[in-house]
């Protein structure tokens, strides 16, 4: 099985994580799922293994336990060829404003944890001289907005971190890809009224990740292209105009 590639999906029980793991498995990749919830993790692990027949392993990971990252990675059966981090926590903006502990949890789950975890993987990939890191960030990180800036700021941090890693690692044989999905119909957004043309299904995000990995170009991309003009406009709005919007 020397030519079987392996993908590590960090946040494997989320809807996007599950779809991503399945997409790679359908292409014959072995899958390592890292997740906090062991019961849900096993549910997804068995599903992907049964659907595709590829080996799928489950690994326990708490994104807030940054000190434990080394042990998690050392415990993998093999260093993966690609690692995809889909971990994120939307939280509630109002609650984060009122409760610093909650705000810190959102910031740590979306920025500190994913950044440090990807950095630990980057060191291992760079030592090997090969590997792909995919970080799922968010359009919410493109400009801080009243409705979700705690989440947005953490994602902005992750976007900048990924950009920096991409810059540093390009000459070391490691490809870093940033994926911004825009709205996605998932458990995270259940019950929210999402506009159809800019809302993707989890498997669309998975397909975008898989294709970007297959092309192997270090870059940042939106899953649906329509987000590029939207976010460019939002970023360029002069502050006096922006302040009058409700976004």
């Amino acid at each position: 099985m020397a030519d079987t590639k392996t993908v590590l999906v960090l946040g494997g029980t989320s809807d996007i994580g599950r779809a991503t793991a399945l997409r790679y498995a359908e292409a014959g990749w072995a899958v390592q799922l890292a997740a906090r919830d062991a019961a849900e993790g096993e549910r997804v692990r068995a599903d992907i293994a049964t659907r595709t027949g590829v080996p799928v392993t489950l690994h326990r990971l708490d994104i807030l336990d940054t000190a434990g990252f080394g042990a998690v990675l050392d415990g993998l059966p093999a260093l993966p060829d690609t690692a995809v981090c889909v971990i994120g926590l939307l939280g509630e903006q109002a609650r984060s404003e009122a409760d610093p502990a909650e705000a810190a949890r959102v910031m740590r789950s979306n920025f500190e944890g994913p950044a440090l975890l990807l950095e630990a993987l980057a060191a291992r990939f760079a030592a090997r001289g090969r590997g792909t890191l995919v970080g799922v960030s968010s359009v919410a990180g493109d400009r801080g907005r009243a409705s979700n800036y705690v989440y947005g700021a953490a994602k902005a941090g992750l976007t900048a971190y990924l950009a920096g890693m991409r810059h540093r690692l390009a000459r070391l044989g490691v490809t870093v890809i940033t994926v911004k999905p825009g709205f996605v119909r998932t458990r995270m957004t259940a019950g929210m009224p999402l506009p159809g043309p800019v809302t993707a299904a989890p498997r669309e995000v998975a397909e975008a990740i898989f294709r970007a990995d297959a092309r192997g170009r270090p870059r940042s991309l939106y899953v649906r292209r329509v987000w590029w003009p939207i976010m460019t406009l939002i970023r360029l709005l002069p502050e006096p105009v922006f302040l009058r919007t409700r976004l």
């Binding site: 549910r43 997804v44 068995a46 599903d47 049964t50 659907r51 027949g53």
Partner: peptide, 9 residues
């Protein structure tokens, strides 16, 4: 519909 996991072949 959310109970959509296969378990074992």
């Amino acid at each position: 519909r959310a109970l959509d996991r296969m378990r074992h072949l």
